[in-house]
Every structure is written in C-alpha cells, then in structure tokens.
Amino acid sequence: MISRFASNVVLSKVRAMYGRRLIKKDYLDLLNCKSVGEIASILKCKSDYFQILQELNESNVHRGQLEALIKKKIFYDTGAICRYELSTGEQFSGYIIMRMEIEQILHTLRLLSAGKSPRYIYSMPLFFNKHTKINLPALIKVENFKDFLEALSGSRYRKILAPFEPRAGENILFSKIEVMLYFQLYNTIFDVIKKYTKGEAQKELYEIFNSYVDFYNFVRIVRLKKYYNTPPEDLYPLLLPFGTLRQKQIQDMVQAESYDKAIEMMKKTNAGRKIANIEFRYVDELPLRVNYLKCNRLIRFSVYPSVVMFSYIALCEIELSNITSIIEGIRYKVPSEEIFKILVW
C-alpha cells in the first residue's frame, strides 16, 4: 500500500516526459524531409532527442544508425521510469528487456535462415549486452541452429527453443518459434499483472494487453488467410492463447470464406467494435492504433502509476514505430501523404 502511494511520483514524471513526445507538427516536419539526414537533423532540434543524436553527422547518416540510436534512447527512457514505480517497476523493466531479447532472437533467426548471420554485427545493440543473459557477440558467429542454441545457453530461451531444432534438411520453423516467444512474453506479463496489481489498475492493464492481443490474433488470421492461404488447422497454433476473443469467434474468423468476411466478423465482437472509430489503411495497423487510443487516454486520466507507466512504454514504442515508418518511407521515396496515413498518433 505504502509503495503504491510512493509510486505516485511516476504519474507526474511520466506525464512530464510524455509532454516531450513528437506531436503532429513534428511528424509533418519529418514528412517534409527528403533524406534520412534531414530527419536526424529535425529530431536533433527536439530537446528529447538532442542528447542521443547530437554527434550524428546529418550529411552522412545511415538509416540503421539512426534507428539504433532512437531505440537505445527509448530503451533507457522507459527503463528509467520503471525505477520509480515500486510495486511493478521491476517486473515491467523485465518485460522491456524480454521484448528486446525476443527481437534480437528473431532477427538472428531471420539472418540464419538466409545464411547471413555475420551481418548481425551491424545491427547488434552492444549497449544491450550488459542487460541480457544472451551472449549477443556469439550470435554473430552462429552457423547453424546448434550454435544458435549455444549462444542462448546462459538464458531462459535455450530451453524454450531447444525443441524447435530442425532435423537435417528441414527449414527453421520461424512462425512457430515467433508464437512461442511471444507466448512466453505475454504469459509473463499477464502473470505480473495478476500477481502485482489489483482492482481498477489490474482492470486497466488487462484492457491494454487483452485488446492488443485480440488485434494481434485478428491481424495474424487475416494476413495468413490473405497472403499465405494457410488452412484453418495450421492457423490455430499460430495464435496467442490470450485476449478476450472467444473460441467460437476465433473459429468463425479462421473459417471465414474471405478476408473481408473475417473483418466483418471482428467488427461484431466486443473488441472489434473499436474498428468503427478508427481510420486505417491496412489491418496490420490496428493493434498499434487501438493501443494508442487506449494508452493515450490512460496516460492522462488513469490514477494508477503502473497503468500510466505502462501506457508510456507502449506510447514510446509507437513513437519509435512512427519514426521507423517515416525513415523507411523517405528512404524508398513514398509520398509524404501516404506515409502520414500509416502513422499512429
């Protein structure tokens, strides 16, 4: 109880930090840029990004370099906030680390599948090495799944991923590994919510995560149906067993005749009703858009430190995703109006 009141400092601190976020005008300025260098230059003018980007040479900046620096800033910003929240801060910082670990594992697996593991050196976040039990430098040298498991030997992931080792001549089961890792992530976070929070705070946190998972599952169903024509029986194992969608609703969507039908079915569910109020171009945008609406509201009006803190973490991740979309869009000469439509704000 005492720790909950002490954590109230997070409310003001997080809201003050959120006040320094990128706003619509900043995004419009970024969209007017012609190169990655100009983006870096504009971000530098924002006090929040100045420190991390101050030594960057705008005339010779690489997209990967800029993204890596922004990721680093957001990792430390969100981690710093967790220190102030005494009831769940430690557990949430564990979530941030676990999420980043999963990103590294999946990235390495993609490179391994393409036979390009040594290229991991270029994107490897060296700063993260001291926060994780994964041996990141060892991931550069992996030549097969065995080496990969060896690099993970100090961490919890070795045991989780060992059953996925492919037999000779078989491909890596990337989708199943991805689902298993995200299952672990959400299982951990739902456990934290159940164990360390209660009452309204618990309800609000469940709302954030359940709605994210609902749309994550929905997007997976739609994508796998539309682009890969995955049969229903292969689809179920690729969904996360969390969220508010009932088994019957998922079944109906999985067995829908077409992708449009699945969307219509989703719109009729409790979670899916929100779609009516959201403008989007591709269904893939929905998890972040729904999450943004919820977190943007909770960060302002929730009175629970753990909720406000997590909303901040989620909104920072959305800001990172927006910046990445802008960088990619400008790099590949997409009209700014098109990029603007996929930004979440």
Partner: peptide, 11 residues
C-alpha cells in the same frame, strides 16, 4: 568511427 562500432571491431 562511433564508439560502439569501435568495440565491435573485436569481432
């Protein structure tokens, strides 16, 4: 060379 890249040279 960025400091982080300098340390990566060990690889």
């Amino acid at each position: 060379l960025p400091k982080e890249s300098y340390h990566k040279l060990n690889s």
